Amino acid sequence: MTGQPAPNWPEEPAGPAATRPDWRETLRNATDLALLGIVVTLAALPVVTAGAAVATGSAALHHWIENGSWPGVRPALRDLRRALLPGVAATVIGVAVAAVLTVNLLALSRGVVPGGTVLIAVTAALTAAAGGFAGLTVVQVGRQAGQGWRDAARAAWRIVLARPVTLLGTAGTVALAAVLCALILPPLTPILVGYTLFGLHATTRRIAGPVLSEDSR
């Protein structure tokens, strides 16, 4: 990762005199996002560190978007240490919810549990909504320097109530990443993690910008 300024992502150029980044800057930033995903994935390999790794990665990405540079290694490691214990609880909850929804979908699709197409569609919608809410919570915990999962979830819920379409955007981002990882590009999953985090931040800022501004006051 470099100390070069972040591009005007996800904001548009401020005026007619503003210029878009050239291909070298775009490539440099794309490489930074890929490296972010790889680092987050490696930090999450022990599983119990997954919550802390995602929170720290989201915080680093928020710092990059806001300040035009990545935080240093020492601040990132400090944030990771602080996020370890709270991240365990977030990981357990996330894995439990994902497991329940996945088991229900498999049981319904195989006819083990009666319900048919209607229940499959409802469960799939709930799964997508849960993924979108999880993604929105990750964005919020990143805006809080990787700390405070409970507060981040509450902030995410306020955003959903104020701008319900935000949930559709984050759910779509998570669903697209899941499809790419599972069906098309499994070996590139670590790289996609960085782009997914960026997609979640960009989508949230684009759709729920005014709500985020009010919360930051």
Rank of each mutant, 00 (worst) to 15 (best):
Leu61Asn: 03
Val211Trp: 03
Leu80Tyr: 11
His201Thr: 01
Gly132His: 08
Gly3Asn: 12
Arg28Lys: 03
Pro186Phe: 07
Leu188Asp: 05
Thr166Lys: 03
Thr26Glu: 11
Val118Pro: 00
Asn29Leu: 04
Leu180Phe: 09
Pro21Thr: 07
His201Asn: 10
Arg150Val: 13
Val95Met: 12
Trp157Ala: 14
Leu161Cys: 09
Glu25Asp: 14
Leu77Phe: 12
Arg74Phe: 10
Leu61Gly: 01
Gly148Gln: 07
Arg205Pro: 00
Gly57Ala: 08
Thr137Val: 07
Gln4Asp: 13
Pro190Tyr: 04
Leu180Pro: 01
Cys181Glu: 11
Leu36Thr: 11
Gly131Phe: 06
Val97His: 01
Val118Thr: 14
Val88Arg: 03
Val174Gly: 02
Leu180Gln: 04
Phe133Cys: 00
Val112Arg: 07
Gln144Ser: 15
Ala208Cys: 08
Gly87Tyr: 07
Leu106Tyr: 12
Gly68Tyr: 06
Leu61Ala: 06
Leu77Trp: 12
Ala83Asp: 07
Arg206Cys: 00
Arg150Met: 08
Asn29Asp: 15
Trp149Ile: 05
Val179His: 06
Ala128Cys: 10
Thr166Trp: 06
Pro16Val: 12
Pro16Leu: 13
Ile191Val: 15
Gly135Met: 07
Ala96Phe: 11
Thr49His: 09
Ala171Gln: 03
Val39Ala: 15
Ala17Tyr: 11
Leu136Val: 06
Pro5Met: 10
Gly199Met: 06
Ala83Ile: 01
Pro16Asn: 09
His201Asp: 12
Glu11Cys: 02
Gly148Glu: 07
Gly68Phe: 05
Arg158Tyr: 09
Ala55Gly: 08
Ala14Gly: 13
